[in-house]
Write a protein that binds this DNA or RNA. Structure first.
Lengths: 211, 211
DNA sequence: TATTTAATGAACGTCAACGTTTAGTTTTTC
DNA sequence: GAAAAACTAAACGTTGACGTTCATTAAATA
């Protein structure tokens, strides 16, 4: 019912592992561009350079394919959040580094498209939505909160609720750009703009939370 | 091609104005729940207590109906942003009032659903997206920026860029709750939670921007 | 009353997409 | 070489939704 099946070598032609990747990749981008309903299996197959039947042999149906795509993106999201961002420099520098890597991820056009598509499509799949949130935004907030607690125990900043502080900082970093990107009012941020946003957010945050 | 037609009284049975409202209302909620593709005209008609043909007589096709719905929501959004929020009390109180009315609007379940659906459906309608952004988020930011400039000229706060400051404040107010609502991880905020969020945001903002 | 327009329900034509079947080809193991 | 499984292309059946047509009834004006 899910994805892979074979583990030990058996008789017969083995599955081409490249096809799995091609299908999921093609499906992801087609879902991103069109949403679940408007994305057709035929289009996904053609884009992946694969027969339609191959998709149905590996994934039961369109719904299952979508779930697999979301699952892999969830893992990818989780991995991106785990990417240890720098623990060098003073607090401001470490926060800037965290913010930069976060915004580079969030503002990448793939992620913007994902952020347009997922909430709508997951609206009636609460479990998948919860998993995705936990792996992505939730985990990101936790990691930032840990970093801030560390800084508090070093007496560099002060607050009562570390999760609250982390939310504030992330909100300051994102600002309005996420909304502008989501509606397509703004296309992309240059590295300079992005860095400037992060530094601004960090500065405001430290001004409010610094001891 | 659009909506209304008649203005002076003519021969024949007049259109029932209640039906227009019923159709648009039904269409709005059906689009919110299911998105453009999964929302069927038959369902919208049934929900509005109206014949399918009546919809096709008033709106050319599904696309036109959708555009009309978005247009009316855009107007509604613009009106909500214009709702003059209190100009009494000290700065913190005025900002709190602004933030409260904003969050009440943003966190209402209707708006959350709209915010899930619209970005995806407008992804390939840049003009509608721009109009909606200008009428909603854009106008909100402008009004808040004006309020902040006023406070700056009263030497209560200081900043270089009023739009930037407005973005910061709005971001602090929203925090993470918008994401949690969008993914359905959190259901709704009580009035107390909402007030607390606003006061927290305002406090952090003033701590960073106060003279 | 005659005319004109709105509205309805039911039936219809059309089309696009899902998912299946079939026959045949390729690639592997035994 | 035989058996087994993956893969493909093409055709097919089915369904669901769009949008239309038609006959009929309702509500207005002249």
């Amino acid at each position: 019912m899910a994805g892979e099946k074979r583990t030990t070598s058996r008789a017969g032609r083995p599955r081409d592992p490249a096809k799995h990747e091609a299908i999921v990749h093609s499906a992801l981008h087609t879902f991103l561009e069109r949403g679940f309903n408007a994305a057709t299996i035929e289009h996904i197959a053609a884009r992946a350079g694969v027969s339609k039947v191959t998709i149905y042999n590996r994934f039961t149906d369109k719904e299952t394919l979508f779930e697999q795509v979301v699952k892999e993106q969830t893992d990818h999201f989780a991995a991106a959040m785990m990417d240890d961002s720098i623990s060098r420099g003073d607090l401001a520098a470490r926060l800037d580094a965290f913010g930069c890597s976060l915004l580079h991820f969030l503002f990448a056009s793939d992620h913007v498209a994902l952020d347009r598509m997922l909430p709508q499509e997951l609206a009636h799949h609460p479990q998948m939505a919860q998993r995705f949130f936990d792996a992505g935004p939730g985990q990101c907030r936790s990691r930032l909160a840990e970093m801030l607690e560390q800084a508090r125990s070093d007496r560099q900043i002060d607050f009562e609720d570390s999760l609250q502080a982390a939310e504030d900082l992330m909100a300051l970093w994102k600002g309005f750009a996420d909304v502008e990107l989501k509606f397509g009012v703004r296309q992309r941020l240059s590295d300079e703009e992005l860095d400037a946003k992060v530094r601004h957010g960090t500065r405001i945050f430290l001004r409010a939370y610094g001891v």
